[in-house]
Amino acid sequence: MDVKYDLASYVRVLKMASTPSWNEFSQIAKVAGAGIFLIGLMGFVIFAVMTVLPGGI
């Protein structure tokens, strides 16, 4: 493991990184929120189906 090479590559990545603009941040937040909502909705639908099916059979 070459520590000097690893540190140099970490520093290079940190120099390239920048703070996102407000528009970029809000777009990422909307997409992440939509993904969380869809996963939760799918879980709720599966729960509702599994709850209703055993009672109907």
Rank of each mutant, 00 (worst) to 15 (best):
Thr19Asp: 09
Pro54Tyr: 00
Ile57Trp: 05
Thr19Leu: 13
Lys15Met: 12
Met42Gln: 04
Val45Ala: 06
Met1Thr: 15
Ile39Ser: 08
Met1Gly: 15
Gly35Thr: 06
Gly35Ser: 06
Phe47Val: 03
Thr19Tyr: 11
Lys30Arg: 14
Thr19Gln: 10
Ala34Arg: 11
Val13Ser: 12
Leu14Phe: 10
Met1Leu: 14
Pro20Glu: 00
Met42Arg: 03
Ile46Pro: 01
Asp2Lys: 07
Gly43Val: 02
Lys4Phe: 13
Ile57Val: 05
Gly56Glu: 11
Ala32Glu: 09
Ser9Tyr: 07
Gly33His: 00
Val52Ala: 12
Asn23Ile: 07
Phe44Pro: 01
Tyr10Glu: 13
Ala48Leu: 06
Tyr10Gln: 15
Pro20Asn: 00
Val11Lys: 12
Val13Ala: 12
Gly40Pro: 00
Phe44Ser: 06
Phe37Cys: 03
Glu24His: 00
Met42Lys: 02
Val31Met: 10
Phe44Trp: 08
Lys4Gly: 08
Leu38Ser: 07
Val13Tyr: 07
Ala17Thr: 01
Lys30Leu: 12
Tyr5Val: 15
Ala8Asp: 08
Pro54Thr: 00
Arg12Glu: 11
Met16Pro: 04
Leu14Val: 09
Phe37Asn: 03
Ala8Thr: 04
Met1Tyr: 14
Gly55Phe: 03
Lys30Pro: 05
Met42Ser: 07
Gly40Ala: 01
Ala29Asp: 09
Ser18Val: 09
Ile39Gly: 07
Met42Glu: 02
Leu53Ile: 10
Tyr5Cys: 13
Phe47Pro: 00
Ile28Trp: 09
Ala29Arg: 10
Arg12Tyr: 12
Leu7Asn: 13
Arg12Ile: 11
Met16Ile: 14
Gly55Met: 04
Ala8His: 05
Ile28Lys: 11
Val31Tyr: 08
Met1Asp: 15
Ser18His: 10
Gly43Asp: 01
Gly33Lys: 03
Ala32Asp: 09
Leu7Met: 13
Val45Arg: 03
Ala48Cys: 06
Tyr5Gly: 14
Asp6Thr: 15
Ser18Asn: 05
Gly43Leu: 04
Ile36Phe: 05
Lys15Trp: 11
Tyr10Asp: 14
Met50Gly: 11
Val31Asn: 09
Ala34Ile: 09
Ala29Trp: 07
Gly40Ser: 02
Thr51Phe: 09
Ser21Asp: 10
Phe44Met: 14
Gly33Tyr: 03
Pro20Met: 00
Ser26Tyr: 13
Gly35Met: 02
Gly35Cys: 03
Ile57Arg: 02
Phe25Ala: 14
Tyr5Lys: 15
Val11Asp: 09
Ala8Asn: 10
Leu14Pro: 08
Gly40Asp: 01
Met16Cys: 11
Pro54Glu: 00
Asn23Tyr: 08
Ile28Leu: 10
Phe44Thr: 05
Leu41Ala: 05
Gly55Ile: 01
Lys4Ile: 14
Phe25Ile: 06
Arg12Phe: 08
Ala8Met: 06
Tyr10Cys: 13
Pro20His: 00
